[in-house]
Design a protein around this nucleic acid. Structure first.
Length: 188
DNA sequence: TTCCCGATTGTA
DNA sequence: ACAATCGGGAAC
């Protein structure tokens, strides 16, 4: 399946199909990339979603076309990155929660001040920092910017589905997806 | 304009 | 177990 095809799927399917895809950032500092190993879906009728029942200035990127990047600050400390899904006007997105580092590991380690490869991208705030994703990249579009996405060549990986992490509303929905037995996910 | 709190992380 | 830290969004 091509990236274009993946991004045209319903949000929950995108969250699953993004697993195994390669995320690349060709930055000024150099190129970093990793395999997406963990995601979460946020839907429009989902109380835990920033887009729940309304659009605001902050969440506008979630309502843009599929492939738009939504970057927001959390806890006043960290940033998280989402890939928007669905057609323009529908506020849904997939949160990138963990990557398996592939290229530019030294650059990631420099950004993260951390030498343990397992801890480089094992969380939404961690991967954003390691990949050099900035708030200014909010509204960028995948494959129309230095942020690139490449679909996997091989067959379908085995996927685990669980409840989402760190939320209180709608905490029982099984909207979290990760690659089974992958050591680079945020939590077991 | 005030107030509350979160899709987290690193340290104790 | 808990502090760090700040902007969005709702309430007043």
């Amino acid at each position: 399946m091509s990236v274009e095809e993946i991004l045209s799927l319903p949000t929950l399917e995108v969250a699953k199909a993004l697993l195994g895809c390669r995320l690349i950032h060709a930055s000024e500092e150099g190129l970093t990339s990793g395999i997406i190993v963990e995601t979460e879906a946020y839907l429009r009728d989902d109380p835990a979603s920033h887009s729940f029942r309304k659009m605001t200035a902050r969440t506008a990127p979630m309502f843009d076309k599929a492939g738009t990047i939504y970057v927001y600050q959390i806890y006043g400390v960290h940033f998280c990155a989402n890939i928007t899904t669905n057609e323009t006007g529908i506020g849904e997105a997939v949160l990138l929660r963990a990557l398996q580092p592939v290229e530019g590991i030294e650059i990631m380690q420099k950004r993260r001040k951390n030498t343990d490869i397992k801890s480089l991208c094992s969380g939404p705030g961690k991967l954003v920092e390691a990949m050099g994703i900035k708030k200014t990249m909010n509204n960028w579009v995948v494959n129309e910017s230095p942020i690139q996405l490449i679909a996997p060549a091989g067959n379908n990986p085995e996927v685990h589905i669980t409840t989402r992490i760190g939320i209180t509303l709608a905490k029982d929905l099984n909207y979290r997806f990760y690659l089974k037995n992958n050591p680079f996910i945020s939590r077991k």
